[in-house]
């Protein structure tokens, strides 16, 4: 079986992991346009080559980042998300809506 190196648990069978798709920056949900939000949610680069992706080691619920070649199926590097996301992302509070209008 293919082996992936989990930054928390070391080398494990690939069947223990779940693929989470491309790493991308989330636009501000309260400030962006509908098209920007649709792009973020649905559209994909779907790159043929080296990509940066989210992966999760399921038994330990540990999410991390992997660099992988989507043509050769080689896993190049895995590392904790903290290497990329240095600052805490604070979500703006949900805009107030009147009860019953949602």
């Amino acid at each position: 079986m293919k082996i992936m190196n989990c930054p928390l648990n070391g080398p494990r069978n690939i069947s223990e992991f779940v693929w989470g798709g491309e790493v991308r920056t989330m636009p501000d949900p309260n400030g962006c346009t509908t098209e920007e939000w649709a792009d973020y949610v649905f559209l994909e680069n779907n790159t043929a080559g080296i990509v940066r992706e989210w992966w999760c080691h399921v038994p330990t619920s540990f999410w991390f980042i992997a660099e992988r070649n989507t043509v050769t199926d080689e896993i190049i590097r895995t590392y904790p998300a903290g290497e990329v996301f240095k600052t805490r992302v604070d979500f703006a509070p949900r805009p107030k809506t009147q009860e019953g209008t949602r």
């Binding site: 690939i14 989507t70 199926d73």
Partner: peptide, 8 residues
Amino acid sequence: PYALYSTR
């Protein structure tokens, strides 16, 4: 289980 441009 994940994206790939390959027919392996």
